[in-house]
Every structure is written in C-alpha cells, then in structure tokens.
Amino acid sequence: QKEELKEKAKEAVKRGNKDKARELLKRAGISEEEAKKIIKKIE
C-alpha cells in the first residue's frame, strides 16, 4: 500500500502536481518534512 502511494506520488510530481503528491505521501504515513524531501528528489 505504502509503495503504491509512493509510486502514485512520483507520477503526480512528474505531471507537475506537487500538492497531489504531498497528499498521497501523507496518506502513506509520511511526515510533511519527509514528503518535501521526497518530492525534491523526484523533481
């Protein structure tokens, strides 16, 4: 489940939808700070 949400978040970032990505990562139980780092890494 968590990995699936991370994959979806990756796709969202690639489409330029960072808010959606952050939302998905939060749903995966990832903190706001972690989510920001992950999104930065994907960009």
Rank of each mutant, 00 (worst) to 15 (best):
L25E: 13
E33F: 04
Q1S: 14
R22Q: 11
K14P: 02
A28Q: 01
D19Y: 03
E11S: 06
L24H: 09
L5V: 05
L5G: 01
K37Q: 13
E7N: 11
A9R: 01
K40S: 13
I42T: 06
E4A: 11
E34K: 06
K40R: 13
L5H: 03
K8D: 05
R15I: 09
K14W: 05
L25D: 11
K18V: 14
S31F: 04
R15H: 11
A12V: 02
E32S: 07
K8N: 06
E32W: 09
R27K: 14
E43N: 05
E34F: 04
L25V: 03
K10A: 11
A35W: 05
K14N: 07
S31L: 05
I38F: 10
K8Q: 14
L24K: 03
L24M: 08
K37Y: 05
K18A: 11
K36H: 12
N17H: 11
A9G: 02
E4D: 12
A21F: 06
I39S: 00
K20Y: 14
E34L: 06
K36L: 14
G16C: 09
K2R: 12
S31I: 03
E3H: 09
D19P: 05
V13Y: 07
N17Y: 08
L24W: 01
K18F: 15
K36S: 14
K6W: 15
A35T: 06
I39H: 00
K20F: 13
E3Q: 09
A21N: 01
K8I: 07
I39K: 00
K18G: 06
E3F: 03
K40L: 12
K2D: 10
R27E: 15
K40A: 14
E3W: 04
A9I: 14
E34V: 06
R15K: 10
D19V: 08
E23S: 04
L24E: 09
E23I: 02
S31R: 04
E4L: 12
D19F: 04
E34M: 08
A28L: 08
L25Q: 06
R22L: 15
A9M: 04
R22N: 15
N17P: 01
E32K: 06
A35D: 00
K6I: 15
I38N: 01
A21Y: 05
L5R: 04
A21D: 01
K40D: 15
N17G: 03
L25K: 03
E23F: 00
E23N: 04
K8C: 14
K41P: 02
A21C: 11
K26P: 15
I39E: 01
A9N: 02
K10S: 06
K10P: 02
K26G: 15
E7W: 05
I30R: 00
K37F: 04
E33S: 09
G16T: 02
A35K: 01
A12F: 06
E4P: 03
A28N: 00
L25T: 01
Q1R: 12
L24T: 02
E43C: 08
K37I: 13
A9Q: 02
R27N: 14
I42F: 13
L25G: 09
A12E: 12
G29D: 03
E33P: 05
L24V: 02
G16N: 04
A9K: 01
R27M: 13
K20A: 13
A35N: 01
R22C: 15
L25C: 13
E3P: 04
I39F: 02
E4N: 10
G29F: 00
K6E: 10
E23G: 02
E7M: 10
A21Q: 01
R15T: 10
D19A: 11
K10L: 10
K20T: 09
A21M: 03
K18Q: 09
L24P: 01
K40V: 10
E3Y: 03
E23W: 00
I42P: 00
K10G: 06
I39L: 08
I38H: 02
G29N: 01
E43F: 07
K41Y: 10
E3D: 09
G29L: 01
K26F: 05
R27D: 15
A35S: 06
R15Y: 03
G16D: 04
V13W: 07
K14A: 10
K10N: 04
K40G: 10
K20D: 11
K8R: 13
K37G: 07
E4W: 12
E34Y: 04
K40P: 01
A21S: 00
N17C: 13
A28E: 02
K2N: 11
A12Q: 09
A35F: 05
R22D: 14
I30K: 02
E23P: 00
E33T: 07
K20S: 08
K37L: 10
K20P: 01
K14Y: 06
G16K: 03
K2Y: 14
A12P: 02
G29H: 00
A12S: 05
N17Q: 12
V13C: 08
A9L: 09
Q1E: 12
V13D: 01
E23Q: 04
K6Y: 15
S31W: 04
I39Q: 00
I42H: 04
L25S: 02
K26W: 03
E11C: 10
R22Y: 15
K41F: 12
D19K: 11
K40E: 15
A12W: 05
E32F: 07
N17I: 04
E3A: 09
I38M: 08
E34H: 05
E11L: 06
R15P: 01
E7I: 08
K6F: 15
K10H: 08
A35Q: 04
K2S: 10
I30Y: 15
E7Q: 11
E34N: 06
K37C: 13
K18C: 13
E33I: 08
R22G: 11
K14S: 07
L25A: 06
K20V: 12
A9P: 01
E32T: 07
I38W: 07
K10D: 04
I42M: 12
E4Q: 10
E7T: 08
L5M: 08
E33G: 07
R15N: 14
E3M: 08
A28T: 03
E4I: 12
A9T: 04
E43W: 09
K36Y: 08
D19M: 08
R15L: 12
I39D: 00
R15G: 10
K41T: 12
K41Q: 14
D19I: 09
K2P: 10
E32C: 07
